[in-house]
Design a protein around this nucleic acid. Structure first.
Lengths: 183, 183
DNA sequence: ACAGTCTCTGACCGATCGGTCAGTTAGCGT
DNA sequence: ACGCTAACTGACCGATCGGTCAGAGACTGT
């Protein structure tokens, strides 16, 4: 969807229906014929990604708390961002400002649910922040890959690197610190 | 500045002068008396943070490439985000959409300069992405600390945790992998 | 040939946007 | 008491916003 790219790039408030119509090669009226309002357009654009995110969260919460579960979530999350990078970009940094839009409220609820899960299952402040940095950073990274200079890597290389980094951050593998801890 | 908080929360395009004036307890005309335009207001709000970021980048580029230098940059960066979290939030995820605003162009140049530095001084894709995730994630984390559930930690604890995490991500300490590499 | 439907459009609407301007108020030096 | 200036305001402006509406084409089944 063309509108989605603009919403993610220029912001929902900063994107006019006129501009969306121009980019689509249609008139504004025509856009409003297919989507009864700007809000409906937003909803159609990001609803699938929210559905998918909900699935991932459901799966996460229904799994036991172990390394395999965390790794599985992590890979699902990376694939999610790879597939829905613009949508993720949208409700990560426009979500808080678009309250009262039903579909955005759903997204915000999911973000809070994810944060709550990590809040409940971590003890130290640093551990909580690791989640924030990992998930927020991964999303930021992918959404701005095109904007920044370095890019043009095969998607599987990107995916592999992402999984590696997030695993380092979130999965208690046998790092030297953990080994010292005797974990 | 009151306007800054709104710009960061609701976006530049999504914040009207009327709303800023209301929050400030003034009339819109009065706001435009102090700042000749909305753009001037934005400039006044974020210019100091851009100046500071420029200092940090200058220092980074003038230092040799070693662990001490990288650690120093990292601490400066963390302190920067801690001090200018709303500003950082602004030009991190509104910067690309606000081109042709001079002060934002400066900020975008700095982001590109930072990305270019890491692009030039890293080899693997994963290494580049570590920078993106670390810096973007740290900025995201701090800017949304209030929005998410977990917070209310003393600032020095937050700072310490941030420095730890970014060090893990960016500074080539003696991890098991590096030891295996014989680095 | 006709009616129906789907897609699309320009003209138009009220609301709100950023910004201008004439004028009011309060404080200060003289 | 006076004039000067800084701070502030409401009324107003053109532009643009999201959204409505009557109608124009194109295509279908009959």
């Amino acid at each position: 969807m063309i509108a989605l790219t603009e919403f993610a790039a220029a912001g929902y408030a900063g994107t006019s229906l006129h501009r969306i119509a121009d980019l689509a090669g249609l008139s504004k009226s025509s856009v409003l014929y297919h989507f009864s309002s700007k809000e409906t357009l937003l909803e159609a654009a990001i609803a699938p990604s929210i559905d998918r995110m909900e699935e991932i969260l459901d799966a996460l919460e229904s799994r036991p708390l172990n390394v395999e579960s965390r790794t599985a979530f992590l890979e699902e999350f990376v694939d999610f961002i790879l597939q829905y990078r613009r949508e993720a970009h949208m409700f990560i940094n426009q979500g808080p400002s678009l309250v009262d839009v039903p579909v955005i409220d759903r997204a915000n609820d999911l973000v809070r649910r994810l944060a709550g899960y990590f809040d409940a299952n971590t003890s130290s402040v640093e551990e909580k922040m690791r989640f924030g940095i990992a998930l927020g950073g991964a999303a930021y990274m992918l959404c701005t890959l095109d904007t920044l200079g370095f890019e043009a890597s095969p998607i599987d290389v990107t995916r592999g690197a992402l999984v590696n980094i997030l695993t380092d951050l979130l999965v208690p593998v046998e790092t030297s610190a953990d080994q010292a801890n005797g974990t």
